[in-house]
Design a protein around this nucleic acid. Structure first.
Lengths: 248, 248
DNA sequence: TTGCTTAATGGTCATTTTAACTATAATTGT
DNA sequence: ACAATTATAGTTAAAATGACCATTAAGCAA
């Protein structure tokens, strides 16, 4: 009986039906330019077919012995030198014929993309230009038609960004180490839209939560009363970790 | 220059590094026994190596020309005959050596699992027993050591269940077509724990939201005043779709 | 200097929501 | 008839929300 069951595993009739996959990792890497209040996404120019000459999300195929997350970190570190970084898995796009290479391939190899979502601090992120061309921060509202199904992936990532911004402290992974409450507010406005909350109420609310530490340092950027620089106090946030934290 | 770039694609040195994958789909299928107030997960007994004799999440390998979602639906329909069904992608587990078959394989084929999260109505779900043995609803707190990394996947699914229960109307995908407010409350209690809310306040809150339609029919289950049967009014819920809906 | 503009900060206050209770109604079982 | 049980329907103090207003401290131009 044992032999019979084991034979089932190796049954070539079953096995021939199965698809063989190459697995890619594509990263939706967001950042925010606090100076210009712009939400940015990192794109790279493709120099290879398919989709040569198109912009795309930075991605790579997963190597032997490499975890998905490792692959995601590898792409990222090939494109950016960065100190602080937030990264999590986003979604897996795997319908057949999402990659034209499938058609060419005699074996019918499928291409699957395990997309990831990343946040970096704009000021601390140094782009690594390999050659002259082909890597840039794009304002989200000016992103062109991308390679593959990358527009769809980007959209999914943007949704995740909006959700996480409301329910978790990822804002502090995008902002510099110290920031004004105005910076924080502007970040929420540029991502969520004008009318998500009154500035004054937003301030009161966040200060009450108790994990924003006033450094005492004041900034003066042009006209107006100078603002205090704040720092995110991760230790003080711990207790709030599981509580709902809705800013909207 | 074009030739040089294209050569890069076909470069065998690059290609040899890449891992070849078989892609599996594993489903975390939850249901709730309203009678006994138990949260259930569907498990199947493995009759093949590896992990022969272990319980596991129902899964399959993705076939040629089949989308991930299709594969997920296929496993499900092989195990259950069900009328109503909620299904969404959960997470992709893809570290190397999560499947012992990788070691045996000369080519170093990797096994990756795109897990899915599903909800079915207990009363309407008819298990399909292929052969005598090997498919059962397990109360979540009595799940044994599962095959592969399926305990981890199950945990991830349970987290998702708890989150979705707070922020979206998935409760009505698990409950029968009509249900009492007590049933609804018990569901929340069994999944989220005793102390998430007072019953009276829970009632008031949900009725105020306006998408629970009183059918007028009364049920009498043993002692006590008979309860009204309610129905989820999907049309009335539409406007609430994007609003936060926290019951906690 | 003086006055105007700008932005940060620190409130007020009516309304709504929450959370902890209490009271009443309609059944079953003795 | 009466207790036990469960559904339903309040009440009420405390907290949170949202729309405002007032003050402070800077830059800038006459």
């Amino acid at each position: 009986m044992r032999g019979k069951l084991q034979r089932k595993v190796a049954d070539p009739l079953d096995d021939d039906l199965l698809a063989d996959f190459k697995v890619g990792v594509d990263n939706v890497i967001f950042s925010v330019d606090t100076e210009q209040n712009r939400l940015l996404v990192l794109l790279v120019m493709r120099h290879e077919d398919p989709y040569m000459g198109y912009w795309s999300l930075p991605g790579t195929l997963v190597r032997q012995g490499e975890s998905l997350e490792d692959a995601a970190y590898r792409v990222l570190s090939e494109k950016i030198r960065v100190h602080n970084l937030y990264l999590e898995q986003l979604y897996t796009f795997g319908g057949p014929s999402r990659d034209p290479r499938e058609a060419k391939d005699a074996y019918g190899v499928r291409y699957l993309s395990v997309s990831h979502f990343a946040l970096v601090r704009f000021a601390e992120a140094e782009l690594i230009a390999d050659g002259v061309s082909g890597i840039a921060w794009y304002p989200l509202n000016r992103v062109p038609r991308l390679a593959f199904d990358h527009n769809e992936i980007l959209n999914y990532g943007y949704q995740r960004l909006r959700n996480k911004l409301e329910y978790s402290p990822i804002a502090f992974d995008v902002l510099p180490e110290t920031f004004t409450l105005g910076d924080l507010y502007q970040l929420y406005v540029t991502v969520l839209g004008e009318d998500f909350s009154d500035y004054s109420n937003f301030r009161a609310r966040l200060l009450k939560l108790g994990f924003l530490e006033d450094t005492g340092v004041k900034t003066s950027r042009g006209a107006g009363r100078p603002a205090s620089l704040y720092r995110f106090d991760a230790a003080a946030f711990e207790p709030c970790k599981d509580k709902p934290m809705v800013f909207i």
